[in-house]
């Protein structure tokens, strides 16, 4: 990674980062939002560019008018600009600046609404991989109901296949965000929100929570490893064969208010994720919360 000029100048600034090791971006596109690797992120970028260009035009137009006004009509001795102290309106001009912004906004609004609807639906005729995401204090739990494996703080997904994330929280709210794959969505207790994303090419990307959720929230980074479907299947197979299953005790340990390193499980208790079968509640009837002082655990 390129070290910044400032960092080189002041070595103290680059002192090591405390806490658990954090995933690093595989390549170097730092403007992650501008370098999407999947269809969702790409379509969002297209809309951004459209809105950006339209707004750039508006900004330019206003700046030019504004510059002319302040240069030409500045109060100077012997100014030759016309002085019309009682000019207080012009119907047609005023109508123009109602209409022009309306037209520009319509240009943005139509694709916006279209894309909003299309992103709310999974692409037709393509079975998605389902991942159940739970944000916990201050870690991510990823459960694969179709594959019966679970991971903590990292995510393995196949390329070229839509991934349906079902998002919930057993903690204060967070948002689930993988910038290079596409936009974010909240994880909220008591609700399951859907979000689908897709990754086009293999690589390691990073995700993060975008919603402040307490003391160690800034450490809620996770790595996203995108691999070809065959490699993904191999990974699932390996995990199921070699790694022990998550017990309820393991899950309770995850509920502590702390941060943990990456973890892998070759299975998990169904009751750890809300479903229609048990009506958004977990074993025991309610969401499990550690009622004790976090330090006591």
């Amino acid at each position: 990674m390129r070290a910044s000029t400032f960092a080189r100048a002041v070595p103290a600034l680059v002192a090591s980062i405390r806490g658990t090791p954090l995933p690093r971006p595989a390549q170097d596109p730092q403007y992650v939002v501008l370098h999407p690797v999947g269809p969702v992120g790409r379509s969002e970028l297209h809309l951004m560019v459209l809105a950006g260009v339209a707004m750039g035009a508006v900004i330019l137009a206003v700046f030019v008018l504004f510059a002319i006004a302040i240069v030409r009509f500045r109060d100077r001795p012997h100014s030759r600009a016309p002085y019309r102290p009682n000019w207080h309106g012009n119907k047609w001009m005023e109508a123009t600046w109602f209409v022009i912004p309306a037209v520009i906004l319509t240009v943005i609004a139509i694709p916006t609404v279209r894309l909003t609807y299309s992103l709310a639906r999974l692409p037709a005729h393509r079975d998605p991989l389902v991942v159940d995401v739970t944000s916990l204090n201050w870690k991510w739990l990823f459960e694969y109901p179709g594959q019966h494996v679970a991971t903590v703080n990292y995510l393995d997904i196949p390329t070229g296949k839509p991934v349906l994330f079902e998002l919930t929280a057993n903690s204060p709210m967070n948002t689930f965000w993988i910038p290079q794959l596409g936009g974010m969505e909240y994880t909220m207790p008591g609700r399951v929100l859907p979000l689908w994303l897709e990754v086009g090419r293999p690589g390691v990307y990073w995700g993060h929570s975008g919603q402040f959720s307490g003391h160690d929230f800034e450490q809620m980074f996770f790595a996203v490893r995108a691999m070809p479907p065959a490699a993904f299947d191999r990974w699932v197979h390996e995990v199921r064969r070699r790694v022990p299953v998550m017990t309820l005790a393991d899950y309770r340990r995850l509920l502590r208010f702390d941060t943990v390193a990456e973890q892998t499980y070759g299975g998990y208790p169904a009751a750890t994720f809300p479903s229609v079968h048990h009506g958004f509640t977990l074993a025991g009837g309610m969401y499990m919360v550690m009622h004790n002082d976090p330090q006591a655990n």
Binding site: E44, A51, G56, F63, G183
Partner: peptide, 30 residues
């Protein structure tokens, strides 16, 4: 006031970018 016009126009324009819903999925809380 003279500083307000260009500054606010840029702020308003970025506000419109946030109002384009799918783009906001990327901008939200950033």
């Amino acid at each position: 006031q003279l500083a307000f016009i260009p500054t606010f126009v840029v702020g308003g324009a970025s506000g419109i970018m946030l109002a384009t819903i799918p783009a906001d999925y990327q901008f939200h809380n950033s």
